[in-house]
Design a binder for these strands. Sequence first.
RNA 1: CGGGGCGUGGCGCAGUCUGGUAGCGCGACGGUUUUGGGUACCGUAGGUCGUAGGUUCGAAUCCUAUCGCCCCGACCA
Length: 446
Amino acid sequence: MRLSRYFLPVLKENPSEAQIVSHRLMLRAGMIRQQAAGIYSWLPLGYKVLKRIEQIVHEEQVRAGHIPLLMPTLQPADLWRESGRYDAYGAEMLRIKDRHERDMLYGPTNEEMITDIFRSHVGSYKDLPLTLYHIQWKFRDEVRPRFGVMRGREFLMKDGYNFDIDKPSALHAYNRHMVSYLRTYERMGLTAIPMRADSGPIGGDDTHEFLVLAQTGESEVFYDDRVTQLKLGDRQVDYDNWDEVAGVCKEFTTLYARTDETHDEAKFAEIPEEHRKVGRGIEVGQIFFFGTKYSEPMGAVVVNDKGERVPVQMGSHGIGVSRLLGAIIEASHDDKGIIWPEGVTPFHAGIVNLKQGDGAADAACDALYKALVGAGLDPLYDDRNERAGAKFATMDLIGLPWRITVGPRGLEKGVVELTSRRTGESEELAPEAAVARLVEIYAAHR
RNA sequence: CGGGGCGUGGCGCAGUCUGGUAGCGCGACGGUUUUGGGUACCGUAGGUCGUAGGUUCGAAUCCUAUCGCCCCGACCA
């Protein structure tokens, strides 16, 4: 994309409504525009990152054997009356009447609807196990939305639901989700720690939240800091191997890590002092096992291999897709702007032409741009007729992890400059070599 | 929902106390200049001062109502 043809309304000054860094930077980088409290338009740059994050979530869900579908945002109230949550949910649920005076609601989550789909089409243990998920907009009418997309009223969420014939199988589904979530967050450049959590209004016996450590987190967290060193890395986990999956979960959940809701001071005190940490975290996902909480009242029954009718065992699993943008920025920025991890960056690299209108510089940038596109990368070429400083400031603000600087001075020596946004380190190299380096870097993030 | 604050060009703000018909910086646009970290200068456009009602010769300014947004708390992905 050429910046002169793009829509990137960056702001030089901080909008007064934004208090925390991710909100400020998203507004300044022209990623979002607030339309009402907790409701945002996603401008091109923000939309691009949102889509990249969504894509990673999809890929990792499919890899774990989960099946995508799409349920509507508006739901009939009757389904929620069946589960008893229509009255239980409270004012956070946005209730609407259609023209026939029927009670509708903008879904805050989809347990009832997925259970309805399941019960009308699945009746036998032979169809299990089954995990269905979707990525859809939700609405929770928060009393006080804040922190930009981190605590919006409308938000994009991946929610998945597993259906299993018995508890051991359902617990494997729980574990499988945990591993797939760990992979998902790692690909986004995040360290998200699974922490035992309270079940909240969704209900259930077993639940973990995934928290990204950040000063601005909404939850206080207590942990052994060795958990932050745990990585899945290149490990290929066989999602059908119950023991292997359970083993990974054990590895990631054995060290103490809890939110204030489940904090146990005695156990915390057993951690060696140099590893005992208290901090704050942003919740970016949660997994629940809840057994027959919905299947029983809603009659989601399957016949098992003995011919008995039993309520199906369920769990639900969520990733806050839109809030992840905020969480990533909170975890990855400096005083100049955002620093996107390679896995989610809106553009792979920025090209800065230091002297727009200079024949050699223009030609070199054009060639570089074509070469990057030809190599399957997605560059942003700042071809505006601006001073170098303005171009650098824009690039730093929007946080592309790599920048190629092209100017007459370097071109005389046959080199361009490749700069890491994260470290600020630059190296001079031939344009073809810069392309090759970027190809290599991004090959590691596929 | 309790407490606090704010609504004035795209963004940040002054003007409100002490009514006299709207201003500054940034940005945008046009030009000159400049060109390796938000260049300098000149010029132009853009605002029924959140909305409605009231007081007044006259309201951004005073009064009433209302809407919206932000912050702290309680709540939450």
